[in-house]
Design a binder for these strands. Structure first.
Length: 424
DNA sequence: TCTGGGGTCCTAGGACCC
DNA sequence: TCTGGGGTCCTAGGACCC
């Protein structure tokens, strides 16, 4: 028996989610935009073929989008999160060892005694997910996580593999690795690939055989782990438990430039509400809060950005207290006369709510009343939708709010948006 | 007009302690 | 000719991921 890592990766995830609910878009180019309708964050295969790049600003590719009638969507995270959990639930039927790695990827551990069994297993997963969700996936298999990623990369590049490739039980792995440029290796980004290239290491195979001590010296232990994983030595294990976040960030670009402190205050209160809701969801409290604001770096106008943090006397997850603290920070860093583009809030010093550092002089816990209020607010928002109940300081009109002009419906989570099927 | 958001881990260097 | 040494903790910054 041999343990293998199996990477399941949804193809063009956001774009595919949109296509599932609009069958007429089959074989048509589709793109999905980032928050604020800023950049391209997902492209269907047809859109990729038109040369639209990942991360490209929307306005830059407006021409080709119009000319080729590309369908454009604002990002609809409610829909994508729900589709993602459908996929993950299916995977859990196939193995008790599933690590949800991102919204559209998961690693599975499974043991096999032959290459035929590997392919049989992969094909079954692929067919089930595609039939039950309408989303297509790629399955990459290898003796380590990094090799499963490599397999998935090759499978996506070449239709020959029909979305499944295993590098387990093979002695010609190097032939595959030679076809992977260093910057496509999992764990090697822009900086390291430049560095490797300068030293004549141009593909995954040459990194595999590079001098280990040199790799460690110039790319830290992370780089060394990557090199070892390419050799088939597993250094990055599967973690199938959800660990609590150590930092929680909430931030957004504004739909239009913001100049007034009052508007910034509203937005920051909103971000604190989001962040502290996430904090309570993982049953934690935070002891440090930071606020940052900045102007639009792409514009030729006076620039200003700043950030400051403050420690809370009593670690908490109580939104109003956190908003108060954030407000003080904001007033400290705000300067008049600038056009602000973005603001954000970060919570850190996060610990489980029942694990507080003892302190002799201040009361330690949030009062029972505060805890009950937050619980009620969270319940109402869960039942009746986000922001059904919110703190007054978040504002009502929210003129600063991000743009999402092209959002699709919440087909799977909202009774009013459920698709209607018309029979002929 | 228009350029995303949310995370993790590692290291170097400084402060501080005995 | 001459400096103590070893350890921990914290932070900022840099790398990476999706």
């Amino acid at each position: 028996m041999k343990k293998a890592f199996i990477l399941i990766d949804c193809n063009n995830f956001y774009a595919s989610c949109e296509k599932v609910f609009q069958p007429k878009l089959k074989n048509k180019p589709v793109v999905v935009l980032s928050n604020n309708d800023g950049c391209i964050v997902a492209r269907s295969n047809e859109a990729k073929a038109l040369g639209i790049r990942m991360g490209q600003p929307y306005f830059e590719c407006m021409d080709i989008i119009k000319k080729k009638s590309v369908s454009v969507f604002s990002s609809n995270y409610t829909l994508y999160a729900d589709m993602s959990s459908r996929v993950m639930n299916i995977l859990e039927l196939f193995s008790p060892m599933v690590e949800i790695y991102s919204i559209d990827e998961a690693f599975i551990n499974y043991e096999f005694d032959s290459p035929e069994k590997v392919n049989e297993y992969a094909l079954k997963i692929k067919k089930t997910v595609e039939k039950w969700t309408g989303l297509s996936i790629t399955v990459g298999i290898g003796d380590t996580k990094t090799l499963s990623k490599a397999a998935s990369y090759i499978a996506k590049k070449n239709d020959l593999y029909k979305g499944i490739l295993s590098l387990s039980f093979r002695d010609d792995i190097d032939e595959f690795l030679k076809k992977i440029p260093v910057y496509e290796i999992w764990g090697v980004g822009r900086q390291y690939s430049k560095h490797l290239f300068n030293h004549g290491i141009e593909n995954a195979c040459s990194l595999k055989y590079a001098d280990e001590s040199w790799v460690k010296k110039t790319m830290t232990v992370c780089g060394l782990k990557t090199a070892l994983e390419l050799k088939g030595i597993s250094c990055i294990s599967l973690s199938d438990t959800i660990t609590a976040k150590k930092t929680i960030i909430s931030s957004r670009s504004f739909g239009k430039p913001v100049e007034k402190l009052d508007d910034l205050r509203e937005s920051v209160a909103m971000y604190v509400s989001n962040a502290s809701e996430k904090l309570r969801k993982q049953s934690s409290i935070a002891s440090i809060i930071s606020v940052f604001i900045n102007t639009n770096r792409f514009k030729d106008e006076p620039q200003y950005s700043n950030y400051s943090s403050s420690s809370l006397q009593v670690p908490t997850s109580y939104t109003p207290d956190l908003i108060k603290c954030a407000n003080n920070i904001l007033e400290k860093i705000y300067r008049e006369g600038y056009k602000y583009k973005k603001a954000g809030v970060m919570l850190s010093g996060i610990v489980p709510k029942d694990q507080i550092q003892l302190n002799l002089f201040v009361p330690l816990f949030d009062s029972e009343k505060k805890i009950r209020i937050m619980k009620t607010v969270d319940c109402l928002n869960k039942k009746y939708g986000n922001n059904t109940v919110f703190t007054g300081s978040c504002g009502i009109k929210k003129e600063w709010q991000m743009r999402r002009d092209l959002k699709s419906k919440n087909y799977t989570t909202d009774w009013d948006d459920i698709p209607v099927i018309k029979l002929p």
